[in-house]
Design a protein around this nucleic acid. Structure first.
Lengths: 150, 150
DNA sequence: TTGCACTTTGGAATCATTCCAACTCATTCG
DNA sequence: CGAATGAGTTGGAATGATTCCAAAGTGCAA
């Protein structure tokens, strides 16, 4: 069962939604709470399952809608790997992703600003990049338990 | 109409396929030739259309098969952008991709080895990466004609 | 000539995602 | 108050890329 949003997170939600003229709804609160509760890059289906525990009537379409809305107002990031289902990630700090092909898990990799700068500098003149996506693909020995929570 | 493979390219094809115990077929030759003829990161559908000009009976399933085979034996790379159709790229040198959101076109960006090294170094211990994918997303003023062919 | 391994093919099946029309609910307006 | 408006939600249908599958085809080797 998902814990309710903290006052702080609820405000963040409310403010971000407001920037695009949208409102807080019970469904959006729960979907957002699910993302914050376990930062394991869940798929839409994962979010759906988890959110349903708290709100059995919730529909899959709504989960799609909520997540799209969050991406639109900058609350979460989409993470795509090859052709697999899209995953969602509430970590807004610049970071790369490491996809462990043994477990299928996705780990965040901190991204030092100078690396980003470095990367931007290899673009030929005339190329202006808004976003850079970096994803590693391999195996990790890391089987740490849960990084968990927020 | 697609030009036949050069002797050199045909050998490359033959050798790569051999490493995984597979054979050169007319279909594979044409699909490979299509990739080399215009290095614009075509989708499966693009390849299908272009290849059909030379071999009208070719089936879509076969194009999927060929491309998968080529990826498997290291002849070409897959390029994924968000949830769009997979694109294919015969450029094997390490490079990043720049996706121009205005035109939808994908450009290769040369990747200096030290940057790759740099990136590898930000992985925490225990993470071993086989491949790194880097994709920029933005707009370019570059409307150069065809870099084209070989 | 028979068997075997690899290929190709068209159509069916799958699966994530998008679309859509009906419905809910809160708020605004006459 | 009661209708109108509009954002949000919902379930099911539709879409689109990709995969699966079973039936043929194509050498090559025994």
């Amino acid at each position: 069962m998902i814990q309710k949003l903290s006052e702080h997170d609820r405000e963040k939600l409310q403010e971000s939604l407001a920037t695009t003229g949208q409102k807080v709804t019970p469904q959006r609160e729960i979907v957002f709470a699910v993302l914050l509760a376990k930062r394991d890059h869940p798929t839409v289906e994962d979010v759906f399952q988890r959110a349903r525990e708290s709100m059995p009537g919730l529909s899959l379409a709504t989960v799609y809608n909520c997540l799209e809305t969050f991406v639109g107002c900058g609350l979460v990031r989409q993470v795509n790997h090859e052709r697999e289902s899209t995953r969602y990630c509430p970590n807004l700090a610049p970071h790369a992703h490491f996809r462990d092909e043994a477990t299928g898990r996705v780990h965040d990799i901190e991204l030092p600003p100078e690396i980003l700068q470095n990367l931007r500098s290899i673009l030929p003149p005339g190329f202006n990049s808004e976003t850079i996506e970096i994803s590693f693909h391999g195996r990790s020995q890391d089987h740490a338990p849960r990084p968990s929570s927020n």
